[in-house]
Computed example of a mutant assay.
Amino acid sequence: MSTIKQFQVTFDCAEPQRVARFWCEVLGYVVTPPRGFASWEDFDLTRPAEDRGSWCACTDPSGVGPRLFFQRVPEGKVVKNRVHLDVRVGTGLVGAERLAALEAECTRLVALGAVRVRLLADEHDSCIVMQDIEGNEFCLD
């Protein structure tokens, strides 16, 4: 039996390059072109006109995090995601210090086009539910 140690997270979206750039800003990732090409634009030149701009990917420059892949789909987002990313900005922090870190990151991401949905907080934990620039849910945790 094999053990899988690598995976990528795939986003269905309307504008793959735009959404990829957003997540690069959120996570400190970089856009990575397909193998054999210097850029996604170079790759697009080999594709039929209707397929250009249909894909994009980004990776963690440290090599630790998973690759994120973005693919254009014709339909828009309709319902809540069944899977979402938790962006870990408050790890190890508690109480007011944790909430301050979450709020600071929320402010930064809203300036990039994210939407704050709601704060989930009790005496033990807190997170902020958000949406990316195409409405995909994620949490600041």
Rank of each mutant, 00 (worst) to 15 (best):
E97R: 15
K77H: 13
S126K: 00
H124G: 05
V129H: 05
E105F: 15
R118Y: 02
L102F: 07
C106K: 14
I128A: 05
L119E: 15
R72L: 09
Q71Y: 05
D86R: 04
P74M: 02
V110K: 06
R116K: 13
E97M: 01
E75M: 14
L120D: 12
S62Q: 11
K77F: 14
D122M: 08
H84K: 13
K80C: 03
V73Y: 01
L120G: 03
A121C: 06
D125R: 10
A114W: 03
R116P: 04
S126E: 08
K80M: 13
L120T: 11
E134K: 01
V64N: 14
G65K: 05
A121F: 01
R98E: 10
V94Q: 12
A96T: 11
A101V: 10
F70R: 12
P74I: 05
L99K: 15
A96C: 02
C106Y: 03
V89N: 00
G63I: 03
E75N: 13
L109E: 03
R108F: 15
A111K: 14
G63M: 06
A96K: 09
G63E: 04
A96Y: 00
D86C: 09
N81Q: 14
R67N: 08
A121N: 09
G95Y: 12
V129N: 02
V117Q: 08
T91V: 13
D86P: 02
D86A: 13
G113N: 02
A114F: 01
E103L: 10
H84G: 13
L93N: 01
V110E: 10
Q71K: 12
D125V: 11
P66N: 05
N81V: 02
R116Q: 08
